[in-house]
């Protein structure tokens, strides 16, 4: 579904991604962990061309996303992206945030878009906040609306860029719960997160990145048994038990 082939990226003279290769198959959940600045966010941003790459290829459904024949706007509808800072549109209500893409990109009628949006809000438990403006929602609620906004476009993959890092601890749970339900429903996901407990529970495979390299990967069970002396083991002990 998504394949990274020797991906290299530089910011000026700084190499932020170095020879990353890996594959995410349909229905899989990959969790990217690693210290800040290790390139995790940059890597998932390359999937929808939010970042360009200087070497290698990124393929979505076997199509090179850098190729001219790929309609990037259509690709982005198929690949949902959830940001750390939610990035809700502050001038639109929670519902308006979700219906915008449905009416303007999908051509749904207002009524149909509203119905679809309410379904997604129900999935994240926020139907009663439909008409609220984002400025009046809590961080956790904003992030759940952002997730609903992505899901409304019927993506085949969801990318999460540290979706809980900006949240107060008591709000992390509600967002992770929404993500777990999504994973349980068979959604293909790549999640950048520091929530190790979530990774252990949901990930088919954990990728550990450091300094732009993918240095370890394995299922949570494999990593748990082999992590004692590894770099990942040291990292996991530092970020705490999950």
């Amino acid at each position: 579904m998504i394949r990274f082939e020797n991906v290299d990226k530089w910011f000026g003279t700084l190499q932020v991604l170095a020879g990353i290769s890996g594959e995410v198959r349909r229905g899989e959940v990959k969790v990217l962990v690693g210290p800040s600045g290790s390139g995790k966010s940059t890597l998932i941003r390359t999937v929808t061309r939010l970042e360009t790459i200087q070497g290698g290829r990124v393929l979505v459904d076997d199509a090179d996303i850098a190729s001219r024949s790929v309609d990037i706007n259509r690709l982005r509808q198929r690949v949902g992206f959830v940001f750390q800072a939610y990035n809700l549109f502050p001038h639109l209500s929670a519902l308006g945030n979700i219906t915008l893409g449905l009416t303007k990109l999908r051509g749904l009628s207002k009524a149909a878009a509203r119905e679809r949006a309410m379904e997604e809000l129900a999935r994240v438990g926020l139907t009663e906040k439909a008409d609220e403006m984002p400025g009046l929602l809590s961080g956790g609620q904003k992030q759940r609306v952002a997730i609903a906004r992505s899901l409304a476009m019927d993506p085949q993959v969801m990318l999460f860029d540290e979706p809980t890092s900006a949240l107060d601890p008591e709000m992390v749970g509600e967002v992770l719960a929404a993500m777990k339900r999504l994973a349980a429903g068979g959604m293909t996901m790549i999640c950048v997160t520091h929530e190790i407990g979530f990774a252990r529970e949901v990930a088919d495979e954990i990728w550990f990145m450091e300094a732009g390299r993918l240095i370890e990967r394995g299922s949570p069970a494999e990593l748990a048994s082999s992590q004692a002396g590894s770099r990942l083991g040291a990292f996991l002990r530092k970020v705490g038990p999950g």
Partner: peptide
């Protein structure tokens, strides 16, 4: 800039 990026991520082009 994140607002623009967020709109592009939903699938809007530059004008949208």
């Amino acid at each position: 800039k994140a607002q623009y990026e967020s709109a592009r991520s939903i699938g809007f082009g530059y004008l949208g």
